[in-house]
């Protein structure tokens, strides 16, 4: 496990403050947990995930150079996970889209019972 931990420095390091990774919403820690879990289960190596992540960050930087847009690390992290899953044939992108549409259509308050 310790070899697979997210590096806390380098181009792909997550946002930090006061020694902490900043997770701004539960989906961010969830996404982070999924990416690590899939790696532990042997679906890809952590280096492979990092390559996609670093490429995503570079691409974002090129596209947003000189523009006043906030860098959202975990947005890119989630995009990278989706891309790797699709590249590996683990999830089809249309299946992801269908599921997103299905969840988006849920009435507000559907999850308030838990």
């Amino acid at each position: 496990m310790s070899d697979n931990l997210l590096p806390l420095s380098g181009p792909d390091s997550p946002p930090m403050a006061n020694g902490e990774i900043i997770f701004e919403a539960p989906w961010q820690s969830r996404t982070f947990g999924m990416a690590q879990a899939l790696c532990l289960e042997g679906h890809y190596s952590w280096d492979e995930f990092r390559e996609v992540l670093i490429a995503g960050i570079r691409k974002w930087e090129m596209q947003h150079q000189g523009k006043d847009v906030d860098f959202q690390y975990f947005d890119i992290f989630l995009d990278s996970l989706m891309q790797l899953l699709s590249d590996r044939g683990l999830l089809q992108s249309d299946a992801i889209r269908d599921r997103i549409d299905q969840y988006t259509a849920r009435p507000h308050g559907h999850d308030h019972s838990h």
């Binding site: 919403a25 989906w27 969830r30 999924m34 989706m82 992801i96 599921r99 997103i100 969840y103």
Partner: peptide, 13 residues
């Protein structure tokens, strides 16, 4: 939107 995307991926996996 991001919460839904993450949830969709997790449920598919």
């Amino acid at each position: 939107p991001q919460g839904i995307r993450a949830e969709a991926i997790e449920s598919l996996l």
